[in-house]
Amino acid sequence: MAVSLGIPLIRAAEPAPAEVPQDGPLVDRYGRAHRDLRISLTDRCSLRCTYCMPVTGVPWLPKDTLLTTDELVRVAEVSASLGIVEMRLTGGEPLLRPDVVTVVRRLAAIETEAGRMRVSITTNGLALPKMMDDLVDAGLERLNVSIDTLDREKYRDLTRRDRLDDALEGIRAARASGLRPLKLNAVAMRGVNDDELRDLLRFAVEHEAELRFIEQMPLDAGHTWRRDAMVEGEEILAELRREFSLERVAGRGASPAEVFAVDGGPATVGVIASVTAPFCGACDRVRLTADGQIRNCLFAREESDLRAVLRDEALDEPGRDAAIARIIRGSIAAKRPGHGIDEPGFLQPQRPMSAIGG
């Protein structure tokens, strides 16, 4: 049994062989084709956001369990052969990985059926001023920067770090990079930043960024999430409409955000209502944790171990690649129709968001 964070993980149930396609697109039993791989580079972070991590006592993943860059790239190459065309690097804070620029460069060089691999990063932005040029040169295509509040005291209380100036400087560096669309992520929290929603949208528009409000999800390390305390997507929209006109943009596809034109455009704002308006029916994402586990859903309680295959010295390269492909296909074949948050038996994942990757 795989072990992470000191907690036994449930291994993914093996689907019957007939249920696992041996070739063709990476499609699950519900017809969803998977094209997007989220890769966690580290579970460590330079902030300690209250909705994600405890202030102390974080059980970091053992260093020897983390995938090396060569291992990570091998999984990425096999994934590309299965139809993955886009990869988003997450964490923790992905820019804390010492060789993140090398990772971006190697991933961006992978050929897919749609051309070169599209590589993006979700970051808290603190390290962007010193790394932005190198990341662009390496082939980074897009950025999502997290910014939940513009108030210094709130930022300090929320992140347990006095780094608002650094975060804002990171957003300025992202804007100056020319990478577009530039997206800003904000988790809406009752009694924390729900009085700043319109301020955050004004800020995003002024900085040529697309704001994405996110419903708070049950992924905190302390398992203290309560649905009745969550700011719902419709509440977010109602608050924004007190100042802005919003018109739904057609063509959502597999995007997690419902997007609205702001005051006729071109500025847009999105709401990711994972809890109250789940988009599971169009999900095209699969996740790789920093310690080499495949997860077919953000809220999955099962994982499939790739690290053991990557480090199995009895396998030659073709055999290893075949085993990786088989495990990924098996994980997708076992994917459930939805995340099940509204089901009576729902249990929060054992891993917190920082150890899963956003």
Rank of each mutant, 00 (worst) to 15 (best):
V187I: 13
E93S: 05
L95V: 11
L82E: 04
L179N: 02
L164I: 13
L107R: 03
M131N: 10
I121K: 01
I121C: 02
N144P: 03
A138G: 06
R190W: 12
A138Y: 02
L89S: 12
R163I: 00
G125T: 06
L158A: 07
D166H: 09
L164N: 11
R172I: 06
A174C: 06
A109N: 12
G91N: 07
A138S: 02
L128Q: 07
R118A: 02
A138M: 11
R118H: 13
D165M: 05
A108F: 08
A108G: 01
D151G: 00
A173E: 05
E169Y: 11
G91H: 08
G92T: 03
L140S: 04
G83V: 05
A173M: 03
L140D: 12
A188N: 08
D157M: 08
D151Y: 02
R105F: 04
R175E: 15
P94I: 13
A109M: 11
T112W: 06
D157T: 14
M117H: 02
P94L: 12
M189R: 14
M132H: 01
A114L: 10
L150E: 04
A114Y: 07
T90A: 01
T112N: 08
R163Q: 13
V101W: 07
A108N: 08
I121D: 06
R160L: 11
L96I: 12
R156M: 14
I84E: 00
A108L: 01
G91R: 09
G115Q: 07
N124H: 10
E111K: 11
D157K: 13
E93K: 05
E86L: 00
Y155H: 14
A176F: 07
L126R: 03
K154F: 13
T102V: 10
M117K: 02
D162L: 02
T112M: 11
N185F: 12
R116L: 05
V104W: 00
R142C: 10
T123D: 09
D166E: 13
R118Y: 07
A176W: 12
M131Q: 15
A186R: 06
G115I: 05
R161N: 10
S120L: 06
A167W: 07
I147K: 02
V136Y: 08
R175H: 12
K154L: 15
R175G: 04
D133Q: 14
L143K: 10
G91Y: 07
V119P: 03
V85I: 14
R105I: 03
A174W: 04
T159A: 09
D166L: 12
P181M: 09
G92I: 04
